[in-house]
């Protein structure tokens, strides 16, 4: 069962725009307001829109079930902590900004004062922004998918669930 034609078509048009906007917020975090947390949340709303258009069983489960998003989330955090540990290798402390003003990937130096905003500055800050963006996107998508997939399903558990009738009378008094 999927939603109507209007929602599906509009969703197909809007979802790529949402992803691009979220990616822009993450990538320009060190120049404009935004950053990892904000951009990751916007990208997760794209996933929510896909879920609204195509429900879990027909759309999302074939596209990418929840366990893949858990890997995405773990990958984001691994990127963060590996970047932080790289500061140890360089010879300074944990989380040292070893790319700043070094001529490497994000290493242009910045002088004091108003400037036009160069994307390739600020050292490890854009790298950490990407890591947090991936992590927040994965995390919020996992939460949305679990809550959506569990609608109307009963769970089975390993331990024996006590009889609800017993909970009111004898057993509850005994557990006191």
């Amino acid at each position: 069962m999927t939603s109507g034609l209007i929602i599906r078509t509009a969703g197909r048009l809007i979802v790529p725009l949402i992803f691009i906007f979220g990616f822009y917020l993450v990538a320009h975090g060190h120049l404009t307001p935004g950053g990892g947390f904000q951009g990751g949340a916007v990208i997760a709303t794209g996933v929510a829109l896909i879920l609204i258009c195509y429900y879990y069983k027909d759309g999302m489960e074939k596209f990418s079930p929840a366990k893949n998003f858990k890997l995405i989330e773990a990958a984001g955090l691994l990127l963060y902590i590996c970047t932080a540990l790289a500061g140890l290798v360089v010879g300074s402390s944990f989380l040292f900004n070893w790319l700043n003003a070094s001529g490497g990937l994000f290493g242009h130096a910045v002088a004091y004062g108003i400037n036009a905003g160069d994307l390739f500055t600020a050292g490890i800050i854009p790298v950490l922004n990407f890591a947090i963006g991936i992590e927040v996107f994965g995390a919020l998508s996992v939460v949305i998918l679990y809550m959506f997939a569990g609608l109307g399903e009963t769970t089975r558990e390993e331990d024996e669930a006590p009889d609800p009738a017993l909970l009111r009378k004898g057993k509850k008094g005994e557990k006191k």
Binding site: A74, I81, L85, F94
Partner: peptide, 27 residues
Amino acid sequence: NLLLDNLPALLIAVPLLGAFLVPVIGR
């Protein structure tokens, strides 16, 4: 010497790194 100097950072980084890898290994 690098490890001994940065012990307080490793104190937190080792369990965190282990925890982030557990879902990957479990899969």
